[in-house]
Amino acid sequence: MSTDDFLARFGAAGQRQPDPVAAAQKAMRNALPKRFYESAAAIERDGLFHVALDGRTARTPARNPLAIASRDVAEALAAEWQAQEQVVDPGRMPLTRLVNSALDGVADQQDAVRAEMVRYAGSDAICYRAGEPEALVARQNEVWEPIRRDVEQRLGARFILAEGIVFAPQPAPALKAVEDAVATIPAPVALAGAHSVMTLTGSALLMLALHFGLRDADAVWEAAHCDEDYQIGIWGQDEEAAERRALRRAEYDAAVLLLTRG
């Protein structure tokens, strides 16, 4: 199987980010191809950094060159390909899948991706708080409030808090501030990373906290799992849930790299 054939069959492209659990499960159901190349490396050509398999530029499912402006991202991509052993397993290649999505989907849908980020901010997860139990209310305030305030200060805008699941519209100036902020995220690679961070955390404000450098990747991940970790503290965590979370974290780490280094 050639590089192009493999990427056409197994690469993940599209306008939305793939679910990491579903992607991994699908990959396991397929007969994985044997590794068909000796080496993977990042090579600079024509002002871009190409992922080269045995010297040949790999291509996305839409047959775009797997080439980007960031050396760091290209080297991480090449390392992901090099880490494949007897078979090439797309379930273990979250960065490749996300970059494919950036080059094949986000590149042509930049306005739609940015608009979706603004819509997320309009019903952002960290603006909706529990009314009970008291311990969860306190935990959400402890974890989310400092982040919300810091993002508000950076944006120069205020967001409305709501209790429960009743929709509370956010002020137009706040959404305009988010629109202006996401307009500064470079496309397509960093923008794809930002979108994926947002969908994996359920929060545009958490994504912006990372983008602005107000919080690091671990702090944002922990904030996104505030409710889940509260429940784990009460009931414990089962093995399948832990595996799903580990897969999401791999997707998240890939997205963070694109957002911060793309």
Results as ranks from 00 to 15, higher is better:
Thr96Asn: 12
Gly156Trp: 04
Thr199Phe: 01
Val51Asp: 07
Tyr252Leu: 05
Glu251Leu: 14
Val178Pro: 04
Ile160His: 15
Ser123Tyr: 11
Ile147Tyr: 04
Ile165Phe: 13
Trp221Tyr: 11
Ala130Pro: 11
Ala204Met: 12
Val87Phe: 04
Gly262Trp: 03
Val106Asp: 00
Leu161Met: 13
Arg29Cys: 08
Ala58Asn: 06
Arg158Glu: 13
Arg215Ile: 12
Ala138Leu: 13
Arg59Gly: 03
Gly14Asn: 12
Ala102Tyr: 00
Glu239Lys: 10
Ser196Leu: 05
Leu206Pro: 00
Leu257Gly: 02
Ser203Thr: 13
Thr201Tyr: 05
Asn30Cys: 09
Asp124Pro: 08
Phe10Gln: 06
Arg29Val: 09
Pro18Asp: 14
Arg9Gln: 15
Pro20Phe: 05
Ala192Thr: 09
Val166Tyr: 10
Trp81Lys: 00
Gly131Ala: 12
Gly14Ile: 04
Ala22Cys: 02
Ala190Met: 10
Ala242Gly: 12
Asp229Tyr: 06
Val118Arg: 06
Leu205Gly: 08
Thr60Ala: 11
Arg16Tyr: 03
His211Ala: 08
Leu66Asp: 00
Met198Glu: 04
Gln140Val: 12
Val197Asn: 01
Ala209Lys: 00
Arg97Cys: 08
Ile165Trp: 01
Arg71His: 06
Val99Met: 02
Val21Gly: 04
His211Val: 01
Glu44Tyr: 10
Gly14Phe: 07
Ala174Cys: 14
Gly11Glu: 07
Met28Ile: 07
Leu77Val: 05
Asp108Gly: 05
Ala181Phe: 02
Ser70Arg: 08
Ala115Phe: 05
Ala174Pro: 12
Ala58Gln: 04
Gly262Pro: 06
Gly202Tyr: 14
Ser196His: 07
Met198Ser: 08
Ile126Pro: 00
Thr199Pro: 03
Phe10Ile: 09
Arg249Leu: 15
Ala157Gln: 03
Ala31Ser: 11
Leu77His: 01
Ala23Asn: 06
Arg249Pro: 09
Arg148Ser: 07
Arg56Ser: 04
Arg129Phe: 14
Ala115Asp: 08
Gly164Ser: 13
Leu258Cys: 01
Leu7Pro: 00
Glu179Gly: 15
Leu66Pro: 04
Tyr230Glu: 03
Ser2Phe: 07
Phe159Thr: 05
Pro94His: 10
Val151Ile: 10
Ser203Lys: 10
Pro20His: 10
Val73Phe: 02
Asp218Met: 12
Ala40Asp: 10
Ala172His: 10
Ala194Arg: 05
Val220Pro: 07
Leu257Trp: 01
Leu95Ala: 08
Ala174Lys: 11
Asp4Trp: 02
Pro146His: 13
Glu80Pro: 07
Ala12Asp: 13
Glu145Ala: 14
Met207Ile: 11
Ala177Trp: 06
Arg35Lys: 15
Pro169Glu: 06
Ala172Phe: 07
Ala12Pro: 03
Pro65Cys: 10
Val189Gly: 02
Ile234Cys: 03
